[in-house]
Nucleic acid binder design. Structure first.
Lengths: 341, 341
DNA sequence: CTGAAAGCGCTTACAG
DNA sequence: CTGAAAGCGCTTACAG
């Protein structure tokens, strides 16, 4: 069996309380004793027992905040599913999670929610932040006040967050390029429709796609890069005009949301099956179009992971003083076709 | 906070020991008391605290056996990696795992290893069983003696195992068919090379492929189904003769091992890049050929999951009396190209 | 700066 | 058939 605090205490000739103080840096201990205990613990390879620690700390439970723009965005359904799985595993460890789903990207709204959570209070925060200076300032403030923050799904700079969990957007775009070569002829025409070039993730996907195309053996004629703001009505219009103006487009690369609108335009123009499509995420509407043969490939980035992993990391950081090993926890970049979903 | 045994004991007017006896069916308790306690626990929504249970049962630790034909098969490296991740999480719960890797499919050898593990003794067994009646009889015997068994990677019938964790082989084949339509022309010629038609998994992949091809819009001319017994020297010869006899083959579907030998044959015949290839697993040699452009797609089936999931299930069964929810825990069927690995 | 004691929620002998 | 006590490995006041 493994080493316990009691064993260390016996060998060091001190009480368990003192060993606990040393090992958890609680202060108030003679430097000499401290060194001796540390040395012994080190030598014996002490590792705290997590089950015991969880039990003992049950009197001051841990509350985590979780803020995502999930309203009206079915992508987040699976994120929340993953979150709940992890939450179930941690109930016995005294962990509870306050979930706040918001609609869209209103900075004031997000700020209010953060404020509300702080006042509960919470011990840590997981958030899909809006990329805005006000938010990054707020998150930095949290960290400074001892409330660690992990970003999920999208990241933000200058916020001093512990780490980021989410897609490797650039790789997602590169993967789309890797698949595109099977869909079009050499020198074939491709249209790109993305959400917003103001969004870092959307830009990275387009960059990854274009860079990888350049590296590959086939030539692609990109006829245009249009934005649809993840809106199905806008995407419908954008796709319709793009396809009308360029009737010889062989494939579309949809780098963000709006697939449903685009597919409706494709149906309207009677290009279904002929025009090839690569898009993102495995949400119900995309599944439907894939089964219908309108969408060839959809690339997904493990939404469940984006829910459970940050919880695991934040708990380990708070209770077991485990620093995240990496700054970026990237999800797998998964390729889906009708046959493997 | 949640309900505890103590609370139930107080309400029922009995000791915690008695509540424990009732809730864990240890017997020796007055039927009347039993009903009362059960009713109260039910009504209050009692759920045992796992951290506490883990701590309390630490005096009788749990030892699990893990038997896989990993020697000389790098596929299992990731299975064992996943296993170790879960093992790390469970050390504090008093769980240790005895790993036995064996080479190939020698029934006597596997039987000996099982016997050795029983004598340690172990509390549960995870195994990639050889599909042989002697083995299934042995595994059934284990279950009857209170040592639950979970199969991983490949299954066996009439063995009374708790459940199976591993690939959906049929779906893997169907997925290959879904990809094939992007690689060949209508009515294109395809060769199939599998491991052994005696292996259920290998047969299922071929079946899945053929069935799905029939369902799809394109026609495929399958020029032959050959076995290579997962051996690279055999697969080299098989591929060479198949490709020489059918110089107009457009693509190969490799349903099991032997990809390295086949790729060497393709290089030898100077068909690299021209001939399309779909294979299985994301082992180092396949990665290499994918980067070289010899392999187009490889389908992998989450080897890490095949390592960690059975451990989680078996532990929960043994300590928390949680029956597996399903008979088959299938892995994701993942599509890989050079860009997303 | 340090120790002794109590407690987290459960299980396990032991005594009756 | 049942209860009282001890213990799993840790943390937390409290007293000095």
């Amino acid at each position: 069996m493994s080493v316990t605090i009691k064993e260390i205490a016996d060998i060091a000739g001190v009480s368990r309380g003192t060993v606990d103080r040393v090992l958890n840096n609680r202060g108030n201990v003679n430097p000499e004793t401290e060194n001796r205990v540390k040395e012994i613990a080190q030598r014996m390879g002490y590792r705290p027992n997590r089950a015991a620690r969880a039990l003992a700390t049950r009197k001051n439970p841990i509350k985590l905040g979780f803020v995502v723009p999930a309203e009206g965005n079915s992508f987040f359904d699976d994120v929340i599913k993953g979150l709940n799985k992890q939450a179930m595993k941690l109930v016995d460890y005294g962990v509870s999670i306050e979930i706040r789903t918001i609609k869209g990207f209103d900075v004031e709204k997000q700020l209010d929610i953060i404020e509300e959570l702080i006042n509960l209070p919470i011990n840590g925060l997981i958030i899909t932040p809006i990329d805005d200076e006000v938010i990054s300032k707020k998150l930095k403030e949290l960290s400074e006040n001892g409330i660690p923050v992990i970003t999920t799904n999208s990241d933000i700079s200058n916020a001093n967050r512990l780490c980021y969990v989410g897609s490797d957007y650039y790789k997602g775009g590169a993967t789309a390029a890797g698949l595109m070569k099977y869909l079009i002829k050499d020198n074939g025409k491709v249209g790109i429709i993305t959400g917003s070039l103001k969004m870092l993730g959307h830009r990275l996907r387009v960059d990854g796609f274009i860079d990888q195309i350049k590296k590959s053996k086939i030539n692609v004629d990109i006829v245009g890069i249009k934005e649809c703001n993840d809106d199905n009505f806008q995407s419908y219009e954008v796709a319709k005009s793009m396809l009308t103006q360029n009737p010889d487009i062989e494939a579309l690369f949809i780098a963000a949301g709006g697939t449903e609108g685009i597919c409706e335009a494709v149906k309207h123009l009677e290009l279904g099956g002929k025009l090839k499509i690569i898009c993102f995420d495995l949400i119900p509407s995309v599944k439907k179009f894939m089964k219908m043969g309108l969408v060839d490939f959809t690339i997904s980035q493990d939404p469940e992971y984006q829910g459970w992993k940050p919880v695991e990391l934040l708990y380990d950081y708070l209770v077991n003083e485990v620093q995240p090993q990496k700054e970026h926890y990237y999800t797998k970049t998964e390729i889906n076709i009708a046959e493997n979903i």
